[in-house]
Amino acid sequence: MGIDISIVEKETGVYLIALKGEINTQTYQALEDKARPTTVKAKAVVFDMAQVNYISSMGLSAIFRIKLAVEEHSGTIALVNMQPKVQLVFDTMKILSPQIFASMEEADDFLDRFLDGVQTGQISPKNLPGKTK
């Protein structure tokens, strides 16, 4: 019922946060606290949601606050491998669909285009690259 959080730097400034368990009233604060040192400097944060089996509105708030912190310095976030019930919560709220991906390859592709676009000044957190598929 708790949450396991592992954070690795995949490449400079790109962090993978792998979560396991539930993002709920009891765990969302731990997620925000653990993520904070990376989100203040990240160019991109990827959440691996494969082992997340539950998210409530408090969990959505935590993801949004992390997203806003990363966007502060022109970074972005992506979410991958969501379980269907967790996906249902995001779909119901109609949120973050341009940043939700079925596989790590698709997320990597998005982030490559995002980071390239930021360098050339054409892309920003408010003007994301589209999905290729």
Binding site: S57, L60, S61, F64, R65, L68, T92, M93, K94
Partner: peptide, 12 residues
């Protein structure tokens, strides 16, 4: 409101 962190509980 779609980019606000909160305010989704009752809607859900």
């Amino acid at each position: 409101r779609a980019q606000q962190p909160c305010g989704r509980g009752i809607f859900l």
